[in-house]
Design a protein around this nucleic acid. Structure first.
Lengths: 247, 247
DNA sequence: GACCCTGTTTGACCTGGATCAAACAGCGAT
DNA sequence: ATCGCTGTTTGATCCAGGTCAAACAGGGTC
């Protein structure tokens, strides 16, 4: 499915990007007709491979493009002067990276690949240009940005109002749901991030994350083997979220 | 400056909205030339007054417009089934409300006036239409959305990685900076929200917020009288944020 | 195979902020 | 002036999650 390793495809390279991509319905092309997708294709002519642990961009760098994840996954984080790191999100295929850079023309966070990954480069000036002509693209782009805002509000809810086990349950259910949307099993998946990264995202220490996993396993909610997760009781996890203290 | 009380101005009413508004540089008109602002004016023809404690919109309601705050201030919040509330933000004049609704065509949070306020109604379909024609408007709108994303990341940092007093210091410095941008004193202002709302926003209980205020006062960093705040030592507050544990 | 290195699990203890509770202050209504 | 209501402050106690520490597991390298 994913061509063995066609590194940075030059504009002259194979021109089939979005039109051939099976992530259309999760990504920018959603809602566009064939002709419109072809126009988007011209724009998204180049890709970039990012190896595990490498940065796609760093806070402070000039902003020029947004990125759509073709394969792999990323984390975004913000780092304080004193070194404290806050993971602001985990991104999977079809999701858009870099929206934070529009406001100041500089990226405001770091994007790091959690595994060897590939992104489509979408030059932002060109995207604005095309979305002035293609209504459906404009609208879809606005939805993508808005979705990011809604997602962020969910994370705030999580960080501000939930206890440790609720946070982890919410996280697992969210991952499950996103894997499902990509055609994978809702119940069994491989986490690409460490306990520490999960902890940073959830506002917890890695030990607390680990303990919560163990507790879930004891309670028969999930089966955990390192990064391999099998969710055994989705309703159980959901209930846990709505009844903070064990009923 | 603000006409005594011209309630919901009908489209036929006085047509001077953005072009006469002294919040231009904080709001959507930023970067537009005169002719462009006139076109925006046609779009932003109606306003709405919202009394203290009243909702501008509620989670679940159909999304039709975004709102620019003309006078007053708001909070936005998300409420869980079990009643837990998370305040996701406090908004002041010139700031835009409702962006969360674009993604699903329904609002995903509540917007409540913290004092008697007035907003400009910006029908979203029309805004998209106009921003397809006016490049500067399109770009400014994208910046506004992106700024919201960046702001949200800052809140995550706050909720996920900072201790109570750092959070309150960050909050006060942020308020100070926003009042300054509006031509008010950086050092002395009136908070429109309760301790409980601040607490919800910062992921703390109101008692903790109150105690942190008292501590700041003891340490000579601020002078607090109910909702009236006078910041005495801005560098001191900043230092506190970077050195979590006292020195 | 033995080694190392990174990430994970588990235990013991500690503490920052939550919880519970009471007093207090401002303010609108009568 | 008095009442009552909402919001705030302060004190006393508790506990969820942090901290410190040790053992362990997997996966790559020589």
């Amino acid at each position: 499915m994913k061509g063995a390793s066609v590194v940075p495809i030059t504009v002259a390279g194979l021109k089939s990007a979005c039109s051939q991509c099976n992530l259309q319905e999760l990504c920018l092309p959603f809602g566009l007709d064939h002709t419109e997708i072809d126009r988007l294709d011209e724009l998204v002519a180049t890709r970039r491979k990012v190896k595990r642990q490498q940065h796609l961009y760093r806070a402070g760098e000039a902003f020029e493009a947004i990125y759509a994840i073709r394969t792999g996954s990323f984390k975004t984080d913000v780092i304080l002067e004193d070194g404290r790191e806050q993971v602001t999100g985990f991104q999977m295929t079809g999701e858009i990276l870099g929206l934070d850079g529009i406001s100041s023309e500089h990226h405001s966070c770091n994007a790091v690949a959690l595994e060897d990954s590939e992104v489509c480069i979408i030059p932002f000036a060109k995207l604005e240009e095309l979305s002035r002509e293609v209504e459906a693209l404009q609208h879809q782009f606005h939805k993508v940005m808005s979705r990011e805002i809604v997602r962020d509000h969910g994370v705030m809810m999580l960080l501000g109002s939930m206890r440790a086990e609720e946070r982890l349950a919410a996280f697992l259910l969210n991952m499950s749901q996103r894997f499902t949307a990509r055609g994978f099993s809702p119940a069994e998946f491989h986490l690409r991030m460490t306990r520490e990264e999960i902890g940073s995202y959830l506002g917890l220490k890695l030990e607390t994350v680990s303990r919560a996993f163990s507790r879930f396993q004891e309670d028969g909610l999930v089966s955990v083997q390192q990064k391999h997760i099998r969710i055994l009781d989705i309703p159980g996890l959901k209930k846990l979220m709505h009844h903070p203290q064990f009923t």
